[in-house]
Amino acid sequence: MNATVAQLTARSLLGGRRVILLITLPGVLVLLAIIARGLAGQDNDVAVGVLSGFALATLVPLLGLIAGTGAIGPEIDDGSIIYLLSKPLSRFSIATTKVVVAVAVISVFAAVPTLLAGLILTGASNLAVAFALGALVAGAAYGALFVLLAVMTRHAVVIGLLYALIWETLVGSYVPGARALSIRQWALAVTEKALGRRAGDLNVESAVSLGVGIAFLLIVIVGCTWFAGSRLRSLRLTSDE
């Protein structure tokens, strides 16, 4: 971790127009929660639908994509990352810092709004906390994954979007084996555990067990961060000539 890198990253992440997206998306979730609560009253099935179907399945991956790629992608694109790389800093510490800042942003703009939406939908219940927890761990994994993607390719946003939409949503729902390889399912395992015995009643069921889910989440978070650092060591900046 490096405080100066974190500061610069946070400023450029929250400084531009990106912040409008970062506010709009969770705004939609909260608005949706208010409308659902107003129309359906306190209904746990509706709450699970919104929290699982929108917050966990759409909001968190999209926020992860925006914050994860945004934490490092623009710097690589315009070449300004050279100011970080031309310093006696460990590349792994740069990568770790980028991931931490991305995850912090995802937590604030995805996990916290998920908690808020849960509270609006169900009042004070552990349903809100359980989904916020799921959003938190999923956000951490997406953050690390998309930071890595941004280091590896200039088309990180497109590839990330395809991944989030096609793999996580489509393949994840129709191909049973693929469901086990999905950040959303691993995070759902955490939510399921947090809900305890109510999970069955609420139809919250992950494709993987808690142990497997946490193990995969850790592998993705640590592995992607490490690999991003390793790629930064041999990042090619220009091919102008």
Partner: peptide, 23 residues
């Protein structure tokens, strides 16, 4: 190459103009 300690000795002025514009 791949020796970040070298930057204690090197000051680099890149040709590209981009910096962290918001500061």
């Amino acid at each position: 190459w791949r020796n970040e300690q070298i930057y204690r000795k090197i000051g680099l002025v890149p040709d590209r103009e981009a910096m962290y514009d918001v500061v």
